[in-house]
């Protein structure tokens, strides 16, 4: 069942809201906390007679490290809302960054065209769901014997994940190869609300369509 035009429009609006929230985190709390980290540095440099006061300096260290943790957590929340790189540089750079960050063995082939906040956001998170499913954590838990098999599988020419994006007839078309066919459901969950779809087009190939705004 495909959603009506109004549903698709509301879904697209929600993607734009998510992107706005990311921007607010960046311009608001993230900036305040980064500025505080600098003010803390000034305080540390300006502390007359505090040079021998270890407890005071340890307190400042804790302060600095908590600020860094808070900023890191803000970055993670912001990335889960809408990756800033996706907005600034598009799907290609954002997906390459995602592949690097997850350590996935994947080939990214993305046409250099923009197709709107909603379609790009939905396609990005569809890929993220598939890469998370292929997370090498599973390999970490395997025995040494299994590791050798995994090594062979990951060599060039082996079943790496292929991520291909094209724009056809006002749709963003995402083709994933070398993925678990069960992930079609996760891809569909992202595509369907925008009026798109996801189909199995091969034994380990999912092709999804995301209407551009």
């Amino acid at each position: 069942m495909t959603p009506g035009r109004d549903d698709a429009r509301r879904s697209a609006d929600r993607w734009r809201d998510r992107q706005t929230l990311e921007r607010r985190l960046h311009d608001g709390p993230a900036q305040r906390l980064s500025a505080l980290a600098l003010r803390l540095g000034v305080l540390r440099a300006d502390a007359p007679g505090r040079n021998g006061d270890d407890a005071w300096h340890r307190g400042l260290d804790v302060f600095q490290s908590e600020l860094e943790s808070a900023l890191q957590e803000l970055r993670e929340v912001a990335g889960a809302l809408y990756p800033p790189l996706l907005d600034e540089a598009g799907l290609g750079p954002a997906l390459r960054e995602l592949v690097t960050a997850t350590g996935a063995v994947a080939r990214v082939d993305v046409a250099d065209v923009r197709c709107g906040t909603a379609a790009e956001g939905a396609a990005y998170f569809a890929v993220a769901a598939c890469l998370a499913a292929a997370d090498p954590v599973a390999t970490d838990l395997a025995t040494d014997v299994a590791t050798d098999a995994a090594t062979d599988a990951a060599t060039p020419g082996g079943p790496e994940i292929g991520i291909r994006v094209r724009v056809e007839n006002d749709d963003l078309v995402l083709t994933l190869t070398g993925v678990d066919p069960d992930r079609r459901r996760s891809v569909l969950d992202e595509a369907a609300p925008l009026g798109g779809g996801a189909e199995l087009t091969g034994p380990a190939e999912i092709t999804a369509r995301f209407p551009c705004a």
Binding site: L33, S34, A37, L38, L40, G41, R44, A45, Q64, L67, E68, L71
Partner: peptide, 9 residues
């Protein structure tokens, strides 16, 4: 560099 990582003289 990250903004918060240059927070000392």
């Amino acid at each position: 560099r990250l903004k918060e990582k240059v927070g000392s003289v």
